[in-house]
Nucleic acid binder design. Structure first.
Lengths: 346, 346
DNA sequence: ACATCTTGTCGGCCTTTCCGACAATGCGT
DNA sequence: ACGCATTGTCGGAAAGGCCGACAAGATGT
């Protein structure tokens, strides 16, 4: 679900989108005269780990470009081509209730098992093996990987429960398996939006996993910081600083925590171009893939464009959340303003 | 069971005893003219950890003394007195079958619990608490400590099984709790003689504890080295080098792995003196505390002195294993030659 | 030798985890 | 719209772990 651009590719940076990732209201000074979207080159990407929650976030160095430098049909620039596409293989799955309910194991999607895990001996009637992925702290875990049941499916059993308990995973959180350039297997997690919004209720009952010291020793700090970070993960001043630099055509850094329901504030030119080629109008019908209440599954929701207007009167030219929509299913209460590139016309 | 002398105390060093701790036969050159026992001052003690097996061993620096320098009724020397007695509090217990049989918990001796663990709230009908001892690798473990049952006893329950599995403990291995100078609780282990003598049969089934990488990654190496070390843990050449230095009155280092059934090769002067004051003779009856087959309990065995003679004709003056004995219970097959200070007259 | 204290072992019971059956979902045609 | 492939959920079964009863062993008198 997460789209991190590649190094040296071009993106459009949306200050308004960036502001939505702050945990404080961001008040842009009136005299800033902010462009609604600024083309930038991605100069560098660093992946970091939040030591408290194990969450992975990205730190992007963006270099502002002149509009003339950007071709909307080509997302890359510079001498390095898209060969870096052949980098890591990874698979992300959102945990179901059964996965997290300590009931037992993790039903592993076939694609995940077949592309990332060592091949099983299918000549065996009940093929099993142990996989040893490493988490972001360098801790190695053991999961028993079996292919069984009727119909046959891939499962992670022994060891999974310990992982869930140690990482305090609940249904809705996501699991990421990655095979790196040395073809070593890694495992990461991403907490669901809900979890991000609430204070951790930490109560590990098992053997101290690697997270014990970390989580408890900084418990007080964690409570406070998480309480404050109700909406996003970055400071308002960091957003303002980024905007200050971008309007002066200075390179700047942004931190991006992937968050379900909060769109990325950097978007590929080709995506925007394709979206803006459409003449959006009231009454147009669209669909959008969204995760269910507990993020355990994705579902296509259908709706109708209610109006097409800039969200912020101060930025009348901005296409950020240009579309005001209504949904066929009343369930979708929030999410009334969408980016054109988030939806698909039906 | 293990008696490590204190720094600055005096001991007698027995080359023959040292040789028994080698895994190879030690052939003392005839021209060495080895004294059977050399008084030494313990200049330094360093405790080390075998990274493969978690075993703790001691490295002692010994400085040879002239006999005139040693008073047999006083084990210490130098300005530092026995105040260092008030150093660490510790308790060692050999694991019973019930302790290791994964059946559940660890029945904790009263003395251990009351002297080393934080005090329980005995006003509570079922007092429980969690203790967090640290192992030699700096890993913290959690054990649930309860005082319950009829009659009441101290037990370690939750967390214990994981520890047993991770450390590959079996009945006969020993557990050591230590409270250090910062009153922090530590936990160590000592493998039984049997385990030391055989190749590890490693087959961890649970989550990878901290030992996993260590034990598996060096599996091959471990097999080999353990196979060779059938009897002791040190090289024959190390023993020879120690003896070479000691006869020249040079300071030397010895490594001591505590081993059930293999007596220490450094002994307090007072102990030797007391033992040699007795006129040992055939037919004298004695008792000796020894551990049972699986080291789960200690039992007093009774026997009779069969003869009093030097084990090695080349060292006719040596008191090392001076006593040839017979046992009342036929069970005690090995252990036919004992040191006078190991037994107690009845 | 006896009384008392301590602690090893056992079987019962409860919890956790493993497993295939079945069905709901999703995708391709 | 239908069929097939995939995978979420459920309840039974097996394993693991917690518990007090009991008694064997240890200790002190």
């Amino acid at each position: 679900m997460v789209q991190i651009p590649e190094v040296n590719s071009n993106i459009f940076y949306f200050p308004q989108g960036h502001a939505e990732h702050a945990y404080q209201p961001v008040h842009f000074p009136a005299d800033f005269n902010i462009p609604s979207q600024i083309p930038c080159r991605v100069a560098a990407i660093h992946y970091r780990v939040d030591p408290h929650t194990d969450e992975v976030y990205a730190k992007l160095r963006l270099v502002p470009l002149h509009v003339s430098q950007v071709r909307f049909d080509d997302d890359t620039v510079g001498g390095i081509d898209n060969m870096s596409e052949t980098k890591y293989q990874s698979y992300t799955k959102t945990l179901t209730q059964s996965n997290a309910n300590n009931g037992g194991g993790f039903s592993c999607p076939r694609k995940c098992a077949e592309t990332l895990f060592p091949p099983l001996d299918y000549s065996d009637m009940l093929p099993t093996q142990d996989i040893f992925p490493m988490d972001v702290h360098g801790e190695t875990w053991r999961f028993r990987h079996a292919y069984r049941g009727m119909p046959k499916r891939h499962l992670l059993t022994t060891g999974w429960s310990d992982f869930v308990t140690d990482k305090l995973l609940v249904s809705g959180d996501s699991l990421v398996f990655v095979r790196d350039e040395h073809s070593d297997l890694h495992v990461g997690i991403r907490r669901s939006k809900k979890r991000n919004d609430c204070i951790f209720n930490f109560s590990s009952k098992r053997k101290l996993g690697p997270s014990y010291n970390r989580l408890t020793s900084s418990f007080g700090e964690l409570r406070i910081s998480d309480k404050v970070m109700g909406i996003g993960k970055v400071k308002a001043e960091d957003v303002l600083e980024a905007v200050r630099l971008v309007v002066n055509m200075q390179p700047f850094d942004v931190v991006y925590y992937p968050r379900v329901g909060t769109p990325e504030f950097f978007v590929k030119p080709s995506l925007i171009r394709k979206a803006l080629q459409i003449r959006w109008w009231c009454g147009m019908r669209f669909k959008m893939a969204m995760e269910t209440e507990d993020s355990s599954r994705t579902h296509w929701f259908v709706g109708e464009i209610a109006s097409v207007e800039a969200v912020d009167p101060a930025c009348p030219d901005s296409v950020w959340r240009l579309l005001r929509v209504t949904w066929d299913e009343a369930v979708v209460t929030n999410m009334k303003m969408l980016n054109p590139w988030e939806v698909e016309i039906v």
